[in-house]
């Protein structure tokens, strides 16, 4: 399967670096200073929320059966055929907010200025050149990981096996890169 963003909430320290990186990535010149000069200011598409004893960088889940796509009466909510990410075609969006009404995760919001649906697009320009989405790249504790489900499952198996054997485990998220290197993969 294609890669998606996995979150390990026990590692999130609520630094909100992902929020800033997201806003910068979606600004006109993709730099922090440029983003501050943008009018309107770019808005982040990830929001760090309180999650009991932890915190959670909430965003669109790019659901396989996405309620927002079914609910969009303009055909504006679209799935990228290559990356399978769900994104808004803002040219078609009329800001009717049906997507906001049906997203069970609160992953789509109403942009009050642009009057368009606003959500994570999983950074198509970055992933097209092999980079991780901006939020993942910015996360200092690797609470977010851009990987395939198979990669995550394999790492979980290794972690479980190691724990069963009484070996100190490497946290799953931080070892994805090491595991990919081991496998000789990307």
């Amino acid at each position: 399967m294609e890669k998606s963003i996995f979150t390990f909430i026990e590692k999130c320290v609520a630094c909100k670096g992902c929020e800033i990186a997201c806003a910068v990535e979606h600004s006109s010149d993709k730099t922090l200073f440029g983003a501050l000069a943008d009018n309107p200011r770019p808005r982040q598409r990830v929001r760090v929320e309180a999650a009991g004893a932890y915190s959670y960088p909430a965003r669109c889940q790019h659901c396989q059966e996405a309620a927002c796509i079914a609910a969009c009466p303009m055909g504006a909510m679209t799935r990228d055929p290559d990356t399978h990410a769900v994104y808004v075609d803002s040219h078609k969006c009329v800001g009717c907010w049906m997507c906001v009404m049906v997203c069970p995760f609160g992953g789509v919001s109403a942009d009050p200025v642009a009057k368009k649906a606003h959500k994570c697009d999983r950074c198509p320009e970055r992933t097209a050149v092999g980079l991780d989405p901006a939020c993942v790249a910015a996360c200092p504790t690797k609470a977010m990981v851009f990987a395939t489900p198979e990669e995550i499952a394999e790492l979980r198996r290794q972690a479980t096996a190691a724990a069963a054997a009484g070996i100190a485990t490497t946290p799953v998220a931080s070892s994805v890169a090491a595991w990919r290197t081991m496998k000789g993969g990307a």
């Binding site: 999650a51 004893a53 932890y54 909430a58 724990a163 946290p171």
Partner: peptide, 13 residues
């Protein structure tokens, strides 16, 4: 938000 509803992971191993 949805974070409030997240299952709480156990303390790290």
């Amino acid at each position: 938000g949805i974070g409030r509803l997240m299952p709480q992971p156990p303390l790290p191993l």
